[in-house]
Simulated assay, not measured.
Amino acid sequence: MNVSVFVSLILIGALAGFFSGTLGIGGSVIMIPLMLLWLNFTQHQAQGTSLAVLAVPVTFFAAYNYYQEGHVNWKYAVIIAVTFIIGGYLGSKLAISIHQGVLKKIFGGVLLIVAIKMILGK
């Protein structure tokens, strides 16, 4: 690992953490695009690495700050977390069988649709 890669990794982590804490985004919106652009990862490598980062409780302290202010619904969070595990497993099985070029287009399309909905929605 050279210095450029190391600095890129630090910046990706810091930016993803910052945006996760401020906007609730990080993995797919920040880390994956930056790994594709800065580290020349394949779509599969970026997605897998992003999931590996989130495999440990990296957002615990950010979530705790929201909890302290009364902004966490634990019942909903547990249900989402359990079903996220199932969906994540099934989705990863599908994703690794899709060609990287197609997967990248699907990924970009989903981000675009969500962005348009967020900007134009109420």
Results as ranks from 00 to 15, higher is better:
residue 85 I to M: 13
residue 72 V to A: 07
residue 81 A to P: 01
residue 50 S to F: 03
residue 57 P to C: 08
residue 44 H to R: 01
residue 76 Y to N: 15
residue 81 A to W: 12
residue 3 V to T: 13
residue 74 W to I: 14
residue 52 A to M: 12
residue 99 H to F: 11
residue 90 L to V: 11
residue 82 V to T: 10
residue 10 I to T: 06
residue 17 G to W: 07
residue 20 S to F: 02
residue 77 A to S: 14
residue 103 L to D: 02
residue 46 A to E: 02
residue 105 K to F: 04
residue 79 I to A: 12
residue 121 G to R: 04
residue 91 G to P: 03
residue 51 L to W: 05
residue 49 T to Q: 02
residue 7 V to Q: 05
residue 61 F to L: 14
residue 100 Q to K: 13
residue 89 Y to R: 05
residue 28 S to H: 11
residue 103 L to P: 07
residue 23 L to C: 05
residue 1 M to P: 05
residue 36 L to S: 00
residue 27 G to K: 04
residue 26 G to S: 04
residue 52 A to L: 14
residue 11 L to G: 00
residue 13 G to N: 00
residue 97 S to H: 12
residue 10 I to H: 05
residue 23 L to E: 08
residue 59 T to W: 06
residue 112 L to Y: 08
residue 93 K to T: 11
residue 24 G to Q: 03
residue 114 V to S: 03
residue 51 L to E: 09
residue 44 H to G: 08
residue 30 I to Q: 01
residue 48 G to T: 04
residue 56 V to R: 08
residue 86 I to V: 12
residue 21 G to K: 02
residue 101 G to Y: 09
residue 36 L to Q: 00
residue 24 G to Y: 01
residue 53 V to H: 07
residue 85 I to S: 13
residue 5 V to T: 15
residue 110 V to T: 12
residue 7 V to P: 00
residue 86 I to G: 01
residue 61 F to D: 09
residue 74 W to L: 15
residue 23 L to K: 10
residue 33 P to M: 07
residue 56 V to Q: 15
residue 26 G to E: 01
residue 43 Q to K: 03
residue 89 Y to G: 04
residue 66 Y to D: 05
residue 110 V to E: 01
residue 89 Y to C: 06
residue 77 A to C: 11
residue 47 Q to W: 01
residue 101 G to R: 02
residue 89 Y to K: 01
residue 50 S to M: 10
residue 32 I to Y: 09
residue 29 V to S: 05
residue 91 G to I: 02
residue 110 V to P: 03
residue 22 T to I: 12
residue 22 T to W: 09
residue 7 V to T: 12
residue 38 W to I: 05
residue 114 V to C: 09
residue 18 F to Q: 08
residue 46 A to D: 04
residue 37 L to T: 10
residue 73 N to D: 14
residue 89 Y to L: 03
residue 34 L to T: 02
residue 20 S to W: 13
residue 61 F to W: 06
residue 46 A to I: 14
residue 56 V to Y: 11
residue 16 A to M: 08
residue 115 A to C: 09
residue 81 A to R: 01
residue 80 I to M: 08
residue 18 F to H: 03
residue 84 F to R: 13
residue 99 H to C: 05
residue 13 G to I: 02
residue 22 T to M: 13
residue 53 V to A: 12
residue 68 Q to V: 10
residue 118 M to S: 06
residue 80 I to L: 12
residue 29 V to N: 09
residue 62 A to W: 05
residue 2 N to F: 03
residue 81 A to S: 13
residue 91 G to F: 08
residue 77 A to K: 02
residue 118 M to K: 06
residue 102 V to A: 11
residue 73 N to K: 14
residue 117 K to F: 13
residue 12 I to S: 01
residue 96 I to R: 11
residue 74 W to M: 15
residue 34 L to Q: 05
residue 37 L to D: 09
residue 13 G to W: 00
residue 17 G to S: 10
residue 59 T to F: 06
residue 119 I to M: 05
residue 8 S to Q: 10
residue 20 S to D: 06
residue 20 S to A: 15
residue 9 L to T: 14
residue 111 L to A: 06
residue 100 Q to M: 08
residue 78 V to Q: 09
residue 82 V to P: 04
residue 50 S to Q: 13
residue 63 A to W: 07
residue 12 I to F: 08
residue 114 V to G: 04
residue 56 V to P: 07
residue 21 G to L: 07
residue 108 G to A: 15
residue 87 G to K: 03
residue 93 K to M: 14
residue 70 G to I: 08
residue 25 I to V: 11
residue 28 S to K: 07
residue 54 L to N: 13
